[in-house]
Design a protein around this nucleic acid. Structure first.
Lengths: 213, 213, 213, 213
DNA sequence: TATGAATGAGGCTTCATTCAT
DNA sequence: AATGAATGAAGCCTCATTCAT
């Protein structure tokens, strides 16, 4: 049995009375919860579905989490763990600004537009008020930190002459905006086919280059 | 009693057995529903709350809508009615590209970042799958139409020489991306203070100008 | 339909969608609750049974009481309402001590050994810790007040010479003890036939007379 | 580790995988069960709590008892084992009626008002219907036997002239009634302080003496 | 024997919906 | 049109019991 896809609702073969290590079960449950919560929303999500998707019985969930809310919180706590994105390293590894634009945009898309990441973002929009401490911490530790990092890298780029000063170097969030557009688009209109998304990503790269060239 | 704000949850004075014209009640109910659905989500929203917020009793709702789903659908049908934004007219009314950038961005922000509009967008993200026909129609009639409109206007601008050709004229969605960033930010992190939002709007204008100048 | 006996579990004819005055429903529910709680105990009592016995549906209970606990509390609050027993009046109305003994014992048995009263006492023993404030209040306002009343009456009787001073006039609770024996007997061993109970009551009267004569 | 007190809920140090002689475990479990059942009632008692209180795990209980009901039955079977009270011997050992009164009352209180005995009586009131055969047997073999014994002793006392004939010699249960009062009082109102209880016991002795002197 | 994760039946409670008034 | 008591279908959660270890 390879790693079961969390999306396969209830597809996991329920081997009889499997006793698994706690951490494995934990991961299975949170994977299942992400799938179900994201698809239905917190209230509409059924503990039965999460259980089935995680490969145990409803009651069994409660050996690992005390309540539906606790599962939700644990899920987002895991999902919102601080990112390890290091833009300075990325910049250092890039021969020039054009390469950096490419690498930077690729990394952002890979981080934010994976199905799991989109699922988390849907949850944040729909149910973020349930876990205000986690969103606030994520905002500060990850999102604003990313923009700040980007600002510092660009400032150095400008100083070094490898980067044209402009509205984007003064307000780096503008360089991130196109992913937000794509994310919001997918959250509202559903999955976009890979080819189209590839195009948008290239257009995003082009924008970054035009603004920083 | 002037028109009661839908946000005033349960503040509406419940005059005893008020019989109101159907269309007034209808609007009250949909206003109430927007507030409640957006704050709680579809499943967590209580018919009681919508009723209280609309100034009648739970049972009274059913004199106007057949079910919770019907209210939801009517709500989004009203909210997603096609926009009357006419970029060509806006362009025509603008003495130059700088003015157009300003007017364009202002209009977009006024449309998308009003509390009600954000509430609708939250609903679209959280519960859009309940009304796929409406989202699809809105995508086609409003969102893609807007991008197309913008493309045509910019193409004419390029032809007339009032607008520099570039990545933005080829891919006009990039000019809209910053609002998406702001919208997503507010959906995830909650309300942003007016001053900050004003700054972001100006930075957006600056971006448009830099790309099209 | 005469007044339905609360013991007739689920025997009440469920007329379709009866809408009754709130206070009538309330009494029905508390009567039903007394029967069910007393027979099964709090935990083992089923809301379904109480509902059926009260003649409505399980959900319907919640229009009148917020929870099982609230029903229990309301039930005991009603049951433990202070007694209106006036021993001074009883004494005044008695031509002599022998008559008083008779009247007093009769009254006590009528109060404490009715099926409903026994049911309440069973609940007090089994579940009294759920409502400590109510038991404490009842202890003070009713039980200890009764003993104190009895003490005053007997003291006057001794002073007037109609009552022999003795251990019973000094410690009036001893005169009540035989009912406690009968109550405890029935709580532990179940219903006693009326004839036997009648005998015990007479023996109790005889004891009182012997102690006070 | 000396024998852990059953009242020390969950205080027993859970030595890892202790294997104890079956009869020791059995006693521990029944002690624990008495504490938990009596405090909570049968339904509200948790197998987990009994297990913790007995110093093993929930599953471990099932190595000793087949079910919750079986524990309950075993508990009451042990608790209701016939008393060895021999009033004739007590009478024989008493120099006079006054001493007998004292000894008799002391013995009754020591039997019935120990915490464990009160716990059992609470269970009998609350849950006695679960084990009708045991209560019936106890009623016949112990309680009624005690009253009968007392009757015989008193009859002999009357015959010997050491005891005044009266209502108490004709209806010996009356001499037991004050303990019932005290028991019922503690079952309903909770623990009484030792000093007060001591007083009541003396008053009981005084009653017996007055009735038999 | 002992453990504790797992099961599954069942309880309390909620809530969309109905309907007598 | 409006009310709100009443219904009944779930849903979350608990817990006695089982069983792999």
């Amino acid at each position: 049995m390879p790693n079961p896809l969390p999306q396969d609702l209830a597809a996991a073969t329920r081997a009889a009375r499997q006793r698994l290590p706690a951490d494995v079960r934990n991961r299975q449950i949170l994977d299942a919860a992400l799938a179900v919560f994201s698809e239905r929303g917190f209230e509409a999500a059924r503990m039965d579905d999460i259980a089935a998707c995680a490969g145990l019985s409803k009651g069994g969930l409660y050996a690992h989490f005390r309540s539906k809310d606790k599962i939700f919180e644990a899920l987002l706590r895991r999902a919102l763990s601080p990112s390890d994105l290091d833009l300075a390293a990325l910049w250092a590894a890039s021969p020039d600004m054009r390469h950096f634009a490419q690498a930077f945009v690729n990394r952002i898309y890979d981080d934010l537009m994976r199905p799991e990441a989109l699922a988390v973002q849907r949850l944040l929009v729909a149910e973020g008020t349930r876990i205000p401490h986690l969103t606030a911490q994520w905002q500060h530790d990850t999102v604003e930190a990313l923009v700040a990092q980007l600002g510092r890298v660009l400032a150095r780029g400008v100083a070094e002459g490898s980067c044209r000063a402009g509205v984007a170097t003064r307000h780096p969030w503008l360089l991130l905006a196109p992913v937000a557009y794509q994310v919001l688009w997918q959250l509202v209109f559903g999955k976009v086919d890979a080819a189209t998304l590839q195009l948008r990503r290239r257009e995003h790269v082009a924008l970054v280059r035009e603004l920083l060239a």
